[in-house]
Design a protein around this nucleic acid. Structure first.
Length: 934
RNA sequence: GCCCAGGUGGCGGAAUUGGUAGACGCGCUGGACUUAAAAUCCAGUGGCCAUACUUGGCUGUGCGGGUUCAAGUCCCGCCCUGGGUACCA
């Protein structure tokens, strides 16, 4: 019987489906284990060979845990709302649901072919109304809660209303956009509309005028993590800042918890660091500067209150509301002009111009509350409205940006911090400011002589005592903009009455996405949903026109898998208490500042309101590396249709041209396929070379480069093609063999033969010369047992530390050794089958069943490693002289240092290296090494 | 600029706690089988030098120093690659 992987893999995939092998249910008698992949967006291009890398790793682990008696939840689904389907709809008029459905079918086909052990019964799609019902439900819950800073928790909005009615808002410490204080009487005399407007400032899901990232090309706003360097992450279109009324999630309320709880997660340090930077906690103080001849104040945030005596000017963000107040008539025209200029510049230009200083004096002055000095107020775009208070106190002596600004406008620079070991100097002679938070304070009143850290403390104390400022922790993390002016997303369960948003009754959910006549904005510029007929409540109040962003559907999907068909709850208490959280989450690092922050926030909110039992969703997380493409090149002689082989190209004037990697094997071009690849090359001629000496001869060798895997570079490798040629088991093992899971590496089909050969060799262990299945029941020899148990130990350790590449090589070593021993004993081969089954599930199921086992190998018992088979009576010691290994010697395992030394020194080789000298020292490390120092 | 990874043969990579550097695989070279090819199997394969052809020596993990009996692994300084992030006050 031959290893017919095509027939055998199809057979077992069908079996698993029919037998429901991987369906799982709550089972209180078994410990649970939840293994999750970041679910894919089903794009039209299908999966390429890079996508399944993480899925294979998680599948190996899921299968490993099953063999170890765990009840494993291992689901898969689709992040199905998204831009590409909508853009395709705009171009073709085809409903995005149809495109999405088609793509999902293709994805599923491809996934099934790789032999993943998913419980397909739990498949979810974020665009399914039964699914997004719960996305909408969570949104309403957020709408109906506020964040209490005192308890650091979300609390029901009704409770807040009660407090307002009794004591106003003066005792409330909330995460809020509400600055004004009101009394109970004031609250009680307000109209419904006024009250609702105030409540919006407290809700965790709120509607407010916000500076947003507006992408004109996509016709929508984008969240911060969807913008990179002034361009949209999807599509690369320019993004500008714009003030718009938008839904936001008050994620910034959770900044402290999101930051602190990172410590309890088993995530890669680099990923935690990215999140820490994204949250961007900084400690400092807010200080109030009074505007001259006015009662108004400019509040600034600073991390360096100790440098307050070095303030020589202030800068406001051009968008700041205070600009108008401080600007004198004399400067009004120039200020207006500067603001106009800033608006015109895109974010991109602002970044590119980062080094050129620009700004405008307003004519206004403020009073430094610590020195009582008058200081001029400028506006400049280096101060951002979105961070801190949108205003800064400028300390040019100790902040490099302020320094540049001061130099440019000829403003004073005062030294207030002296670096350790240096003397005060004239700032006029400086090349740059001294920014470090170290040194002694000078020129600064009551903090003179203090160290910076003490000076900061003392200054803050002073500010608070005199009510001119307060201690303040600032976060870079902004609230998440939650509206998108698009069609293909979750509708908001919100309607508007007199301009005030109200949530739909939860029992009316889901609010289904309506049909529209076109997937474009209306002529008035309203989002596509404004085109829908009857997009309103029975009372005629229209629904929200925006839809939710991509991260809405992916923020709680891991909870839905626990109980995917539940019509009464996102997840039942029972299911949540059993499955708890994700034990292992595998996915790319690109979600570090998006999905992985939103999910954590979403989960913490659900935890606060008592719907989930764990306050962090993903206990352990692994980032799989990217699989890059490996492109091949042919070299065309300029002005001809003649191609030169790689090593001969230097003799000609050539242009490298990308060639489809699928017609190249081990860098050797299939010339016939190349001629058929593109009509242009039909009559191409070739200068060939001989393989080893680079002389003209018989083969066309291609050049190569590692690049992104992309259609346009002709380096996309499709898993279906690999499976067709080698089988899914080979694909799975080869992807693991390629290198460490976390590392990025190029897909290189050269080498896949080695893994395939290994599986053939493994297969042959079970068959005799006549090719009949033949497994012997004879007792295994010591050598055979040793090989088996060595492999069990190695593979188990490797799986547990996710070092799958080394486990594959352990299997190769094992099979090579067993082949040498011609071992066909059941006692060895059956445990080996189980050991290999997480990696190569199809071939092992087949051999397991041929060996007479009735049940799927998926639920067999993982073999137990027994130390006794590895115990050796002798150890081969490397003997080195001054650290250089010279020869080896076999010594009894329990020998002591003195005995070993005696034997070694008598050895003829040792005599040679000693050269009649006596050793200074002999180091004996048991079971490791002997080193002789001469 | 700052933060985080990483740099080992022709290639992917191994060396888990400082203890034989280069496991395993690819590729390459030679051989067996075959009319031939494929498949399969066997042997060799970091570099340099010497050699009685069997072996021996030197050198070698980005670069320069250091610690140690012993360094790919630890410390100091530098170079390079990849990723994250940025007028964040």
């Amino acid at each position: 019987m031959d290893y017919n992987f095509r027939a055998l893999e199809e057979k077992w995939q069908k079996f698993w489906e029919k037998d429901k092998t991987f369906h799982c249910e709550i089972d209180q008698n078994k410990p649970k284990y939840y293994v999750l992949d970041m679910f894919p967006y089903p794009s039209g291009a299908g999966l390429h060979v890079g996508h399944p890398l993480g899925y294979i790793a998680s599948d190996i682990y899921a299968r490993y845990k099953r063999l170890n008696g765990f009840n494993v939840l291992h689901p898969m689904g689709y992040d199905a709302f998204g831009l590409p389907a909508e853009q395709y709809a705009i171009q073709t008029g085809q409903h995005p649901a149809i495109t999405t459905d088609k793509n999902i079918k293709r994805y599923k086909e491809q996934l099934v072919k790789i032999g993943f052990s998913y419980d397909w019964n739990r498949e979810i799609r974020t665009c399914d109304p039964d699914y997004y019902k719960w996305t909408q439900w969570v949104f309403i819950e957020m709408f109906e809660h506020w964040f209490n800073n005192k308890t650091q928790k979300a609390e029901p909005i009704e409770r807040l209303v009660d407090i307002f009615a009794q004591e106003g808002n003066k005792n409330i410490d909330a995460a809020t956009g509400q600055d004004d204080v009101f009394t109970a009487d004031q609250w009680n005399s307000m109209s419904e509309k006024e009250q609702q407007t105030i409540l919006l400032n407290y809700r965790l899901a709120y509607l407010a005028d916000t500076m947003v990232n507006w992408c004109p090309a996509l016709g929508t706003v984008l969240a911060n993590d969807e913008v990179k360097e002034g361009f949209s992450v999807r599509g690369g279109h320019p993004v500008v800042q714009k003030k718009m009324k938008q839904w936001s999630l008050r994620i910034s309320a959770y900044a402290e918890r999101l930051l602190n709880d990172l410590d309890k997660l088993e995530w890669p340090d680099s990923l935690k660091e990215i999140q820490r930077n994204w949250i961007g906690r900084s400690e400092g103080a807010e200080i109030d500067f009074t505007i001259k001849d006015s009662d108004s104040v400019i509040t600034v945030f600073t991390t360096r209150p100790d440098t307050s005596w070095g303030v020589t000017f202030m800068v406001l963000a051009p968008e700041s509301d205070l600009v108008q107040q401080v600007t004198t008539p004399e400067y009004e025209k120039d200020v207006k002009q500067y603001i106009e200029d800033t608006k015109k510049r895109s974010e991109r230009e602002r970044l590119a111009d980062a080094k050129t200083v620009s700004g405008q004096f307003t004519g206004g002055y403020a009073i430094n509350p610590l020195t009582n000095q008058e200081i001029p107020i400028y506006i400049s775009d280096y101060v951002l409205m979105g961070y801190g208070t949108g205003a800064i106190m400028a300390v040019p002596g100790h902040d490099s940006r302020d320094f540049k600004f001061a130099r440019h406008f000829g403003l004073d620079i005062i030294q207030v911090v002296v670096k350790k070991g240096e003397k005060p100097s004239d700032p006029k002679t400086w090349d740059d400011s001294y920014d470090a938070k170290e040194g002694k304070i000078i020129n600064s009143g009551f903090i003179n002589g203090l160290e910076v850290s003490d000076a900061i403390e003392k200054t803050i104390q002073h500010l608070e005592d005199n009510r001119i400022g307060k201690r303040k922790i600032n976060y870079r993390l902004r609230d998440a903009i939650f509206s998108r002016q698009r069609y293909w997303g979750e509708p908001f369960p919100i309607y508007f009455k007199e301009g005030i948003p109200y949530p739909l009754d939860k029992d009316k959910l889901p609010l289904e996405l309506p049909e529209v006549d076109a997937y474009l904005p209306t002529e008035e510029g309203e989002p596509p949903l404004a085109r829908a007929k009857n997009w309103e409540t029975p009372d005629g109040y229209h629904f929200e026109y925006s839809t939710m962003p991509g991260f809405a559907g992916s923020s709680a999907y891991y909870l839905r898998y626990m109980d995917p068909k539940n019509d009464n709850a996102l997840v039942s208490k029972e299911a949540n208490e059993y499955w708890q959280d994700v034990d292992l989450y595998i996915g790319g690092t690109e979600h570090a500042t998006g999905h992985l922050i939103y999910s954590r926030y979403w989960n913490k909110f659900l935890y606060d309101i008592g719907w989930v039992c764990k306050d962090e969703p993903f206990k352990k997380l692994i980032n799989q590396g990217m699989i890059q493409g490996r492109s091949n090149f042919v070299y065309r002689i300029k002005g001809s249709n003649k191609f030169v082989s790689y090593n001969l190209r230097k003799n000609y004037d050539v242009t490298p041209i990308h060639v489809d990697v699928n017609i190249v094997d081990n860098d050797i071009l299939d010339i016939e396929a190349f001629k058929n690849w593109n009509p242009e090359y039909k009559n191409a001629e070739f200068v060939l070379e001989d393989l080893h000496d680079g002389k003209a001869g018989g083969k066309y060798i291609c050049g190569y480069a590692v690049e992104k895997m992309s259609k346009s570079l002709y380096n996309v490798v499709n898993p279906d093609d690999v499976i067709e040629q080698y089988g899914a088991d080979t694909l799975r093992m080869y992807e693991m063999f390629l290198g460490p899971l976390e590392m990025s590496k190029p897909w290189d089909t050269n080498g896949i033969d080695g893994v395939h050969k290994f599986l053939r060799k493994f297969w042959r262990l079970f068959f005799d010369e006549e090719n009949n299945f033949n497994v012997s029941d004879a007792e295994a020899s010591e050598d055979e047992l040793k090989i088996l148990h060595k492999t069990i130990k190695k593979v188990q350790e490797d799986i547990e530390r996710f070092s799958f590449n080394t486990s594959v090589s352990a299997f190769m070593i094992c099979v090579n050794e067993l082949t040498d021993l011609k071992c066909n004993k059941r006692q060895i081969l059956e445990p080996l089958l189980i050991l290999l089954s997480p990696f190569a599930p199809h071939i092992t199921e087949e051999l397991w069943s041929l060996a007479g086992n009735k049940d799927s190998i998926a639920y067999a018992d993982f073999p137990k490693f027994k130390e006794k088979y590895l115990i050796e009576s002798f150890v081969e010691y490397p003997v080195s002289f001054n650290g250089k290994m010279r020869f080896k010697i076999k010594l009894p395992v329990d020998i002591n240092a003195k005995e070993a030394q005696e034997i070694v020194l008598k050895h003829e080789q040792a005599q040679k290296w000693l050269d009649a000298k006596s050793p200074k020292k002999v180091i004996f490390v048991p079971k490791k090494i002997i080193n002789i120092v001469i």
